[in-house]
Write a protein that binds this DNA or RNA. Sequence first.
DNA 1: CTAAAAACCGAGCATTAACTCAGTTTTACT
DNA 2: AGTAAAACTGAGTTAATGCTCGGTTTTTAG
Lengths: 200, 200
Amino acid sequence: MTRKEAILQAATVLFSQKGYKETSTADISELTKVAEGTIYYHFSNKEKLFLSVLEQTRELITKEFESYMENRQFRNGMEMIEHAVTFYMYLAGKLENQFLLLHRHYPYKMALTNPDIRENLEAIYDCLVDIFEQGVLMGQQDGSIGKMPPRKTALIIFSMVDGVVRFKTYNLYDASALFNDIIVSCRKILTTDQKYEEGA
Amino acid sequence: MTRKEAILQAATVLFSQKGYKETSTADISELTKVAEGTIYYHFSNKEKLFLSVLEQTRELITKEFESYMENRQFRNGMEMIEHAVTFYMYLAGKLENQFLLLHRHYPYKMALTNPDIRENLEAIYDCLVDIFEQGVLMGQQDGSIGKMPPRKTALIIFSMVDGVVRFKTYNLYDASALFNDIIVSCRKILTTDQKYEEGA
DNA sequence: CTAAAAACCGAGCATTAACTCAGTTTTACT
DNA sequence: AGTAAAACTGAGTTAATGCTCGGTTTTTAG
């Protein structure tokens, strides 16, 4: 592993676990055994370093997700969404630091003034919500999912799953204990239900 | 307003909008026109000041919620939860700074080492989830809500609603546009459905 | 009115953090 | 081997921050 990669890796861990402001370049230097000057040789400043971490996070999450969804066949849209939810919770465990980063507030704060950061954050969320939306559209064609607004439904499913993952991030509740209940809830939300089709 | 109250108010705004570490006592001093020494006269240090902000936040949110739920009659559990969801989204708009504070990561980080902070955070979440749980229990007695684990269901409903509120916090999506869809999803999750009762 | 107590002030201290730069080591190429 | 470029180093600079403390003003109570 090159020193540049080591810096990026250490920054990912520290930014996600301690926070951006709370992580000093000295911390990164100590963890990597690389001099502070080297950090600034590879990344012009701390914000650029964070941007690189975020770009790598985007790459990891979107690639992982897209390759999972591409190499699989689903009987219908409902099944696709169930798999997407399952994979989301699996990935949140596997890429714990990356998801922790996205569950912190400072990236969204920085996104207000830094367009590059905003673009990467939006790309990650778009990728995830798009997958759920495609599932809804697919399910509406094959009949496994009822009549409902696809994008909004995707956002709600995403919000539910991500919220539960965050419980774990915040040390409030163990997300995996809710896994079955989330799948059941998803199915209920997506299933055709005459009663609500009329009322909407 | 006393100076102590002014400090507390300014700290709430700054901690929630800028973050804890990013807010200096000089910032608070400037905003309130109160000398830095006065801040330390009323609050022994910055962490104690944050604790006071959190205590006030807990007081505000739990009192608001409890008084809303107490002074109202609901035809059944389902209606109670619908009202709780609606009030949650209303309150998140009214107490924007307080909810923003709870949607940041540092309070939960501090909670790991500071039991007083942990206690207040848990009290807020317990209060909110308890209300949803009570709604589920009530609905299961009056028949408006199906057979399902009350606490877990409450957590999922909470997670869904809070997740959508966070979209707004993070400037990703306007929460209010999803209001109707959330209510519909809630009803679907809570409604008795023979198909899933057996499968669980 | 007076004196003690409470509230308030802000300059100053000690520490820390982002970033620079002049110099050193390593790598790549002929 | 020789040399130029790339990679690396860490002490030093500058600015900011949490907090203290001696002194001043305001409030309170007899």
